[in-house]
């Protein structure tokens, strides 16, 4: 298995923009360690910023992969900037909005924002939470000499299922059985 840090894709405009949601819940173990109670402070569960970056990377990564019909193995290569201005607590929803700045055969440059929504107070406006810039590499084109598996291990069936469940079409070439990884 792997962590999927987005729950639903709201918008997917080919080569331009992807918007995704992530509900943050106390059922996630990581929040209990970030941060547990101490002798001087009650438990303070907040979503780790590193995992917010991961959620953005998955949103932007799907956008970059979708631009080439998931033919490329798209790997996060560089976080140029990640500036956080507010915390996210259990019961909040994160909204990731990623855009492609530049895409070529080698990879892509993306940027976007993360906002915090409060389902308990839906009338409140979204709170800006982070601004992120990141780059992705198409690794088959940048790591000559290294062999990678033929199957696209980046965009697993879990990501394809997420796309389908969100109401987006999955390229026919990506509908496939699970890869045989051997004994």
């Amino acid at each position: 298995m792997r962590w999927i840090w987005i729950d639903r894709i709201l918008e997917l405009e080919k080569g331009r923009r992807c918007v995704a949601l992530k509900n943050v819940t106390l059922a996630e173990d990581v929040l209990h360690d970030h941060f547990p109670a101490t002798a001087h402070r009650p438990a303070t569960p907040v979503m780790p910023n590193t995992l917010i970056i991961e959620g953005f990377a998955q949103t932007a990564g799907i956008l970059v992969g979708h631009a080439n019909d998931f033919k490329e193995k798209v790997i996060l290569a560089k976080i140029g900037k990640a500036v956080f201005t507010a915390p996210c607590r259990p019961g909040h929803t994160l909204r990731f909005t990623a855009g492609i700045e530049r895409l070529d055969a080698s990879g892509a440059s993306t940027s976007g924002i993360v906002e915090r929504l409060d389902p308990g107070q839906p009338a409140l406006p979204a709170v800006p939470l982070a601004k992120i810039e990141m780059m992705f590499s198409h690794i088959d084109r940048n790591m000559s000499g290294l062999d990678f598996p033929d199957f696209n291990f980046v965009f697993t069936s879990q990501f394809m299922d997420l796309l389908k469940q969100s109401g987006f079409a999955v390229p026919a070439s990506e509908v496939r059985p699970a890869p045989n990884l051997g004994p």
Partner: peptide, 21 residues
């Protein structure tokens, strides 16, 4: 290595030029 791609993308934007791979 990835920084060179980043630099190329940023140069294109800063100088309004197109740089081939």
């Amino acid at each position: 290595s990835i920084d060179y791609l980043d630099i190329v993308f940023r140069l294109e934007k800063a100088f309004n030029i197109k740089i081939q791979q």
